[in-house]
Design a binder for these strands. Structure first.
Lengths: 341, 341
DNA sequence: CTGTTAGCGCATTCAA
DNA sequence: TTGAATGCGCTAACAG
């Protein structure tokens, strides 16, 4: 148990400034309600005493914590880290801080995090996707605070959802690859549920086009996606030597695949490599790489803004489809966005 | 202002269970102090009422928040995101939650974050590096809580520091490259201060070896490091066409450089590419890439553990040098670690 | 513009 | 093993 010298309280500041505690409080948090002179004296007292407000006490009284609880599946993927950066920064601009939980793509972990986090009485919650345990939903319902679900478009969100249809994205990629003339596109992906739904869309589009069912190489979720490139492509070339294009579940994976493809002497883009995310774009060092462009930072910012709106008590658009964009580079045909919202 | 139905309090639970509030509290937090039967009744009351403890009130009384304030320069770099993941997970294992601030490599931003965060009375603080504003130091001194500084080894930390000497790392890379026979190694790096110090060590080693001063290409800090590969290598080849190796400030950058080098038809590893971090390793799809291996996850875990020790009131080793490791692959000479702690 | 009163929900301290 | 009294530090509501 840490023995810490008692920190100065508002009472100390008030005494120093020769005012009542509530006036000191106002001078700090709502300076416009206080006379110039008083404000100055309080300000000086704050500096002199090294006062740091105690927001536990403040939150207890005001029932506002200026805290947001966010839970993401991972911080290792650029999409999520971009989002997180934008989310945290945007929230900070409105004086909200963020507690971060990492679910490792497991709804049960999400629930565990949420349980712990709710005891801090956050003003709002940010979750990923729309798959949550029953208890998670119940907790959130009882807590009765704004909730934003990011990444998936859902017509019936718990509160607010901002994202896009993973299925549509997968479908669009298949159609694009088919339009480029690829005959046997395959899928290299991790196990997570969003990648899974993209793959479903992809396969469905294939079925609709009477194309053969796409071969899938699936590997467990894990941090170093790029590292999977080698083994995933290797596995594919064994399982489906005639594959002529791959849809990767992340940009990092696509880069790893590309590096290995180069090494094998595969001719890209005759062998098509398709990524997912925003990095391959920034990486314009990779002209052969096409991608489904998703702007994680944008989702983070929009999420923060929707949440702020809700935390202010205003209703927000319950569901927002931010869409996606097909970016084609080095393809056998000119680029042509299939869908843009 | 959100109108929220009043949540059940401990009093409600107590009433339901037919005990006093303090007994209910004990049943929840220190069950071993309470009779089996009572505990059960309380447990049921908790479930029935959907009680969620209010840790604002708890923290106010107990002066313990189980909250850790962490500030990192960026979440976009794998080193930091690996660290963050390990840090947050390890802290969570001991029931600590984390509020996250992102400083963008600016000590002033760090100060701003810290100011806001300290009002939540965190039990501990995690910072990056040893460069902090005077006010940051003063705030922390007054707050009188455990502080862990990560990434840099410093013999005189504020409280606990865990990291390695950036200078030594730079120096080791130069020596390694020289030993491999590279005559004119250059540096491609972002502006951040740790990369800067590595470059200094690199240059110093060059001077000591009577080698020409290494050319440096410096670009501003920004998320998509890999995207810089193209322009950085391009700039280098203009400024120093005779450069025969590059020391990149991150693995992502090195991958971008490598991709562009391939494109240009540069023969790697005759043209040496040296990364920094843990990704190029995981990416064993890149046999040409050597690297200074730094294990971000390890730093995060060690940081969490040191902080937990301190938060329990125990002293911790003030400074820990975790060292680094030279990993050589595809080099013109066999690998030979220069230093290993 | 400033102050008084009261209470937020809980855990510590002491007593039974 | 349980309970009563108390106060943590602050701000809402009202009064002046």
């Amino acid at each position: 148990m840490q023995i810490r010298s008692t920190l100065p309280t508002l009472k100390d500041v008030a005494r120093l400034a020769g005012v009542s505690p509530i006036t000191a409080s106002r001078a700090i948090h709502r300076p416009e309600l206080v006379a110039e002179a008083t404000r100055m004296r309080v300000k000086q007292a704050v500096e002199q005493s090294g006062y740091v407000p105690n927001s536990l006490a403040g939150g207890l009284t005001s029932r506002q914590t200026r805290l947001v609880a966010a839970i993401v599946p991972s911080v290792a993927h650029s999409l999520f880290s971009d989002m997180l950066n934008a989310l945290i920064s945007r929230l900070a601009a409105d004086s909200y801080e963020t507690t971060l939980g990492i679910s490792n793509y497991e709804p049960e972990h999400e629930e565990t995090w949420l349980t712990a986090m709710l005891s801090r009485r956050p003003d709002g919650v940010v979750l990923t996707g729309t798959e949550h345990t029953t208890r998670t939903r119940r907790l959130l319902l009882n807590a009765n605070i704004p909730v934003v679900e990011l990444w998936d478009y859902s017509p019936h969100p718990m509160d607010v959802a901002i994202g896009f249809s993973q299925e549509d994205a997968g479908r669009a990629v298949f159609r694009y690859l088919a339009a480029c003339g690829y005959q046997r596109p395959a899928i290299l992906r991790s196990e997570d549920s969003r990648a899974h739904r993209r793959a479903q869309g992809f396969a469905r589009a294939a079925a609709e086009a009477n194309a053969p069912e796409p071969v899938q190489i699936v590997f467990p979720e894990s941090s170093p996606q790029a590292g999977r490139g080698r083994e995933a492509l290797g596995a594919l070339l064994v399982k489906a030597p005639d594959a002529d294009a791959v849809f990767c579940s992340s940009d990092a994976l696509a880069q790893g695949v590309l590096a290995y493809a180069h090494e094998l002497g595969l001719n890209v883009p005759q062998f098509g490599v398709f990524g997912f995310g925003d990095q391959a774009l920034a990486v314009n060092s990779i002209p052969a790489l096409s991608t489904v462009r998703i702007d994680g930072a944008c989702i983070g910012r929009l999420g923060a803004e929707a949440l702020i709106t809700r935390m202010r008590g205003a209703p927000a658009t319950p569901a927002q489809d931010v869409g996606f964009e097909i970016i084609a580079r080095g393809s056998t045909r000119p680029a042509e966005p299939l869908r843009r919202q």
